[in-house]
Amino acid sequence: MSTPSSPEQPLSAEDETLARHREALRKRFPMPTPKPRKSRAPLAISTLLIIIGAGLVWTDPSYRTEHYSSTVGERRELDLVDGSKLVLDSSTRVEVSWHLRSRRVELSTGQALFDVSKTVFRPFEVDAGAARVTVLGTRFNVSREQDAVNVALMRGSVSVQSTVDPAQQQRLAPGQQLAVLNGQLQPTENADLSKILAWQERKLVFSHTPLSQAIEQIQRYRQAPIRLDDQSLANLPISGVFNTDKVDDLLDLLPHILPLNITRDTDGTLHITHRAAKK
């Protein structure tokens, strides 16, 4: 036998009223049309671009690089796009790179005078091997030799930092100079600016300069190598003012003022040896 179905419950007066007017109520109070969900892609892309931009600013990438050099005996003047000026001494090589947050010069070899235009947000950095010089706007001279970097300040302010030991850092005032020997900052000294900048007038000025250091400077103005074959001569002092256009005349003069001999190979290589005392 089938189970009898439950009898339908009678509608209340309120339900009957709602049923009669349901369609009229729907038309008068329609349900809001659901809005399409916004894609999150544009927001994600914007966030990604912000992150990439912040990363680029933080890493300070280079967007332009320039290479300059001077030949033996040449003095070259450069005007950079930011208004800074460089003067390259003989046999000098530099690489200038422009970054988002900085301006940088790598002094590979030689000597240069920098006259830097001032900007608040883009410091000017000179990397010379064991030394890094940072400025905002100033005039200074940097000379790079085999084991030493010499920085002299004419105007403004510079910070010199050892790249071997970054904790070593020193700020210079106008008229001061500082040497970095084998990555170690030496005490600051008063600079003899006329002597330091004599190369711009094609002069070499030595004042009790050790022969080995003098040879490094002379080599800058000579194509063929100069060999100091006897290291016992390295600390012999040399003094005087000499013409950089006539360095061979200076070399020929050395045997007359120091106890040494000079010989030349067929390719122009010059050898300096000790001269034995006459019996």
Rank of each mutant, 00 (worst) to 15 (best):
V164G: 06
Q200H: 05
T163Q: 13
A173H: 13
W199Q: 04
I196Q: 09
I226Y: 05
N150W: 04
N182I: 01
E145I: 01
R202M: 07
L236R: 14
D165V: 11
L185V: 07
L251H: 02
Q184M: 03
L250V: 04
Q161S: 10
A152T: 02
L251A: 10
T138G: 09
Q219R: 12
T188K: 15
N150P: 00
K203A: 11
Q170Y: 04
Q176I: 05
K195Q: 15
P187D: 03
P210M: 07
V160A: 12
P187V: 03
R222Y: 05
R144G: 13
G175L: 13
D249G: 10
I226P: 03
L251W: 08
T163M: 09
F242Q: 07
S232P: 03
P174G: 12
L204F: 06
R171T: 15
Q161Y: 07
A167L: 07
G137W: 11
G175C: 12
T138W: 08
D229Q: 13
F140E: 01
E201S: 14
R155E: 14
L254T: 05
Q217S: 11
Q223A: 14
L204M: 10
R155A: 04
S212M: 11
T138H: 03
P237D: 06
D248L: 10
K195H: 03
R155C: 00
N141E: 09
P255F: 05
G137A: 04
V142W: 03
R222P: 06
H208S: 15
P255C: 10
S239W: 08
D147A: 13
E201R: 15
P255N: 09
T163K: 10
D147H: 13
Q213R: 12
K246R: 14
E201H: 15
A191L: 00
G240L: 06
Q146D: 13
L253M: 12
D249P: 01
A167E: 13
Q217W: 09
D249L: 13
D229G: 13
G137V: 07
D147K: 11
M154S: 13
Q200L: 05
L181A: 02
I215K: 12
V164Q: 09
V149W: 00
L204V: 10
T244E: 09
Q223G: 04
P225K: 00
V135I: 03
R202K: 12
Q184L: 14
L204E: 08
K246E: 14
S143Q: 08
V180T: 07
L251E: 06
L251C: 03
D165T: 15
Q177L: 03
V241H: 04
